[in-house]
Structure formats: structure tokens, C-alpha cells
Design a protein around this nucleic acid. Structure first.
Length: 221
DNA sequence: GATTGGATCGCCT
DNA sequence: GGCGATCCAATCG
């Protein structure tokens, strides 16, 4: 486990290229929990005038639409959550706690209002840019939380409603974790439906926001 | 127009 | 692991 973490650090800090194709809209037009699981290992990639920054997705949460009390769609369509009700593969970017941006990938058919929150990535490209934006050097502290991911990649409200398969903000094919290494746990920081097991992360990965090696989390078969 | 709470983070103990 | 920062958007009057 420790060996994996170290080899991962070594393998990914060199700013390697990734040539994976963008995940198409059809990838997102499926069950939200399946998409949340399968986004693990994909690459979140963002280009701004400052440069490119990208990382491997290691932690996600599923938000299941109007019948999920923790999902923004539970309160109907508003100006804020309009992009959440867009077509599959849309970026839903919102501002939270008066401080942070969070980025989601919209799932299922247009109008359903479900999405996957990207909670943590493993830095792959543009490490210096991310360090500058975050104001810290420690690789583990760059992108281990949804607000940190957006700050490191330069994602803000300008990206809300954009497609994730063309343009400056992309999700690309990557290298999924082995299935036994995917852990399932309750979502973080929510009031309602606080015990629904809809958080997915790569077990043992040092870039997960918390609980990377929690012994009590359930791994998938 | 005012109030309130939130899918967080970073610093402090 | 506890708590204050900080401000937008939804809700209420």
C-alpha cells in the first residue's frame, strides 16, 4: 500500500503527457453511481491563459437528482443550478461557503438534475502552476478537496455550463484503479441523506481528501 | 431589503 | 478535531 503510494508519486510528478480521448456525452448518459465509479482514474484537464493543469481523478461523489435530498436539484431548477439540468457531460460549477468553487460532471438525460462531484485529483501536469495558484508546495495539499481542485486548476464560474468533451475544460480517458481498490463511503459535508454511501475513492491513494486508508470503509467486490 | 445556511478550507489547539 | 472566515443565492417579509 505504501509502496503503491510512493511509486504513484514518483510516476506522476514528471509532467507526463496523456493522450486519452475526451469521454463522450454517452459516457455520462448513464446511472450516476456508475459514472462516479468509472470517473476514478480519468484525467481532469484545464487550460487557461496561465497554462495547462491536469490530474487523475481519485475521489468522486454521486448526487442523484431531485429525489436525493443532498442534491442541488432537490429544490427545483434555479438560476444557480441551471447547468445541473443541462445535457450529460456538462460542467456544473458552483460557488460554496462564500469561498470555494466546486466542479461536477452532469449525468443522465438532459433535465434530470444529477451529477458527479469531483472531490480530489492526483497532480499530473502543471504542478508549478498549481503550486502558485494554491500558495503551497506540498503535492498532497494541492488538490485533495473539491475547492482545492478548482483553485489549483483555475476553474471558476466561467466554466459553468461548458461541455466536458471539448473546449478548455476536459475529462479524458485515463487509468482506472483496480476494482478491489475502490472504496465506498458516505458523502462528506452534507446535512441530508448523510449516510447514503455515494462517495467513491481509490483506496490508499495519498491524494484523496480524507480516509484514504480507513479500515472500515467497504471495498467493492 | 434582510436573513440564513451552505456538496469547504486552513489554522489553531 | 474544532472553529472562524467569507459571501452568494435562496427564502422570507
Amino acid at each position: 500500500m505504501k509502496r503503491n503510494a510512493r511509486s504513484r508519486l514518483g510516476r506522476h510528478t514528471g509532467g507526463r503527457r496523456h493522450n486519452g480521448a475526451a469521454l463522450p456525452p454517452a459516457f455520462y448518459d448513464r446511472d450516476t453511481e456508475v459514472v462516479a465509479r468509472e470517473l476514478l482514474g480519468a484525467t481532469l484537464w484545464c487550460r487557461t491563459p496561465e497554462g495547462v493543469a491536469a490530474g487523475r481523478i481519485v475521489e468522486t461523489e454521486a448526487y442523484l437528482g431531485p429525489h436525493d435530498p443532498a442534491c442541488h436539484a432537490a429544490s427545483g431548477i434555479t438560476p444557480r443550478n441551471r447547468a445541473l439540468h443541462g445535457p450529460p457531460g456538462t460542467a456544473y460549477v458552483y460557488f460554496i461557503y462564500g469561498v470555494h468553487w466546486c466542479v461536477n460532471a452532469v449525468t443522465r438525460e438532459e433535465g434530470h438534475g444529477s451529477a458527479v462531484l469531483i472531490r480530489a485529483i492526483e497532480p499530473l501536469e502543471g504542478v508549478e502552476l498549481m503550486q502558485r495558484r494554491r500558495g503551497r508546495d506540498d503535492l498532497r495539499e494541492l488538490t485533495n478537496g473539491p475547492g482545492k481542485v478548482c483553485q489549483a486548476l483555475g476553474i471558476d464560474g466561467r466554466f459553468n455550463g461548458m461541455p466536458l468533451y471539448r473546449g478548455p475544460l476536459l475529462i479524458l480517458e485515463g487509468t482506472p484503479p483496480a476494482r478491489p481498490r475502490i472504496a465506498v463511503a458516505p458523502r462528506i459535508g452534507i446535512r441530508h441523506a448523510a449516510d447514503w454511501p455515494l462517495r467513491f475513492f481509490e483506496l490508499g491513494n495519498p491524494f484523496v481528501s480524507r480516509g484514504a486508508a480507513e479500515p472500515e470503509t467497504k471495498t467493492t467486490r
